[in-house]
Design a binder for these strands. Structure first.
Lengths: 217, 217
DNA sequence: ATGTTCAGTATTGTATACAGGATTCTTTCA
DNA sequence: TGAAAGAATCCTGTATACAATACTGAACAT
């Protein structure tokens, strides 16, 4: 049956959820038949979703041997961090002034993040929302899609990181500085903070990943 | 039968060729059965390739109504141009010094481009090679993959543009300036030229597309 | 002449079937 | 006891089948 939204879209979201929730851990093998049974669909839309997620970077396609969740790799988080710390500032630069109402929404998100310490999944969700909402006014939809896709990569690292460190990360201090700068109409300052936010954040994840990867030998 | 490279990869390349050659023109509908017969494979790998190309931006998936080549749209070339004129300079900045040998290869490509005026497909191929080779030393593979994918978008516009204007475009003058700057170890200057190269080039394509799109009503 | 309804056809999205490599487990031999 | 070989199983990649929508065109009404 053909419904309005292709099954592959729903299936993609569900698989992303499994990755973000940690149920599909980095490095683990992904079998399409198992997912198809679990989700109650056939292998076809599952494989379409897996191929898409491989392209997006969450998974890895091993020719002839299926898919696995991309293992944590210091090089990857570094590479993606470099790109994010360039593209998100670009998106902010292209955006029209952010209305006060949206700044308030972002502040509220930060406060909610403070209360979700200890719950990695929830605080990571909020963090992603924060950036999506910050940039939602950007008139370049292709750029928005790219940044949203790229942000999915740090999520895997953050999840593993927060699980180990006990859920403490994602300082909202940098967010607050950006909001203050935007409230004073100091766009360039906010843009610099955004760049630093990703650069420092992913550097921290890179450093942690190096130790985590080497210790799991 | 399972060969070493998945069929979808070959099929993707073949479909990209059809788009670049203009045989699949912007806006035209793409039927998977027809492609499958033509390429001598089943619908499955064809549809996998079509889904990938939709994600990359060359095609568009119309839910319930298949695929079509993304029509020329001034907004799209502008958006992609903005991203390219940020990411390629970033890739160059991250690259180690470019060896003299590679600069010579790039010069040779420029000379060959001069001789292919009148043959859009050939000169566009060479232009893409030029940028790929310029950046091939960049240590950020994810960034390289993104720029390579993004460059596929201007190709569709260039092809239509050169077909109408008689094959004249792609001035190699900007390339030469970059190579001179790199030869003098003036990286920042070369990076600025690279940014301008994409900005001006895509602005020209955007302006032309506006007239082309409005006149085809 | 233009618009509308209703078959019939074409085409898509999904499910299932099939072939062959990859993996695993057992068995055999050193 | 451990390594190597081989059989059995699993799983992937591809092909095909099926169900339902979207399109096409002819007959009809306005």
């Amino acid at each position: 049956m053909i419904t309005r939204a292709p099954l592959r879209d729903d299936v993609s979201r569900e698989i992303v959820q499994l990755v973000h929730s940690g149920e599909l851990a980095p490095g683990s093998k992904v079998r399409d038949v198992a997912l198809a049974e679990r989700l109650g669909v056939s292998r076809t839309p599952v494989r379409e979703a897996l191929l898409r997620l491989s392209r997006d970077g969450a998974l890895e396609a091993l020719p002839g041997r299926g898919f696995r969740v991309r293992p944590l790799d210091p090089g990857e988080i570094r590479d993606v961090g470099t790109i994010l710390s360039t593209l998100e500032p670009l998106a902010l630069r292209l955006s029209p002034d952010i209305p006060r109402e949206r700044l308030d929404r972002l502040s509220a998100l930060d406060r909610r993040m403070e209360t979700t310490r200890g719950d990695p999944a929830a605080s990571i969700d909020l963090h992603d929302d924060w950036h999506r909402i910050l940039l939602e006014g950007c008139p370049n939809p292709r750029l928005l899609q790219m940044t949203a896709t790229l942000r999915q990569t740090p999520r895997r690292y953050l999840h593993a990181y927060m699980r180990q460190t006990g859920g403490v990360s994602l300082s909202t201090g940098q967010h607050a500085k950006m909001l203050e700068a935007l409230g004073r109409d100091e766009r360039e300052s906010a843009i610099r903070h955004l760049e630093q936010h990703w650069r420092r954040g992913t550097e921290e994840l890179e450093a942690w990943t190096k130790t985590a990867v080497s210790s799991e030998q």
